[in-house]
Simulated assay, not measured.
Amino acid sequence: MVQDRHIIETLGKVRVVIENGEITEVGESEMKYCPMFHAMHKVDELNEEFIRKNINFRIKDFGMCTPERVIEMDDLVTVGISEILKTNIEKGNIDCVVGACDGAGTLLMTNPRVVQGVGGRVSGLVSTTPIPEVIEKLKQKDCIILNEETAELNQLEGLKIALDKGYKNIAITILPSPMVEEIRNYPVGDDVNVYIFVAHTTGASPDEVEMLFENADIVTACASKAISEYADANRPYYYGVKVPIFCASEDGRRFLDIRLDHIGKPLTTNEYPRDKSDAPHKLL
């Protein structure tokens, strides 16, 4: 029997282990404050008590890392990666998303509500194990699972499947890693576009951040000091003050502006210096 064990990084790169629907381990975080959670929940300190409460809420509310996992959702925030992808799928600009889901691993999605449901409230997925009920629900929504037996996380292999299936406008969500560059350099046809969306960047090194901006299309700021410093020096287009979303390419800016226009918000800007009055007290 496969062990039920899921590892995520969340709330300031805290490592959280969930087994059989229960939190079994909570790591340490150097970040004690997050402007998003302060605004949404009036939380002044990201301590272990709050982290456990938050993760338990996700487990109970939408079944994260359990067989009760909800896989379809409506918009959760004004602008996040899943919201950007959802809108651009609906408008026909993206026809496939290579993402990752707890209990399933890397998967291909074409349903905008599934893209939102899978990615909307889950933090960085480090590893996961198969949950048959989750995999079956995803397959019923026409998702393709990279490896149903192991729930492997491998976005490059997911890209290869998307290419084999004939998709032409492929978005990939991924955490900071050397695989971002591998995906960008992977040979695809002249009629294929690959768009890279990088999330959960807290703790990324300056060299890693430079690589991300050279290869990705959208990069979220999270609580990354290196991304904040890179942005101030290179002035990319962005949206948001508390937790900005940065455009690493013109395609990224196009996708973000399409989402912003869809919800009636001001479009991206590159006005610097940025307002960082409510940035995390201690960026990582």
Rank of each mutant, 00 (worst) to 15 (best):
Y195D: 01
C143N: 03
P176R: 02
N193F: 04
G166A: 09
K137T: 01
A204S: 15
G166H: 10
E149H: 10
A204D: 08
V192L: 06
N154P: 02
A171K: 08
E182S: 15
I183Q: 01
Y195G: 02
S205C: 05
L138S: 03
L163A: 04
D190A: 10
D164C: 06
E133G: 11
T202M: 02
R184H: 15
Y167H: 14
L146W: 05
N147V: 04
S177I: 08
K139A: 02
I161D: 04
I144P: 07
E136A: 07
L175G: 14
T201Q: 11
G158A: 05
E152F: 00
V198D: 05
E133L: 13
K168A: 04
P132E: 02
E181M: 14
I135V: 10
Q155W: 01
L159E: 06
P176V: 00
P178R: 00
Y186R: 01
D142Q: 12
P178N: 02
G203A: 05
T173C: 11
I131W: 00
T201P: 12
E133P: 13
V180N: 10
H200G: 09
L163T: 06
K168C: 07
E148I: 12
I161A: 02
D142V: 00
V134T: 12
A204I: 13
L156D: 13
M179Y: 06
I145L: 07
Y167S: 10
Y195W: 08
N169I: 00
P130G: 11
I135R: 04
L138R: 03
L138P: 03
V194T: 13
V188H: 13
L156P: 09
V192I: 10
I174L: 08
V180D: 07
S205H: 11
A204G: 11
S205I: 10
L175Y: 13
P130Y: 09
L163E: 09
K139I: 01
P176L: 00
S177A: 14
S177F: 00
D142R: 11
K139D: 01
M179K: 06
V188W: 09
L175N: 14
D190Q: 13
P206G: 09
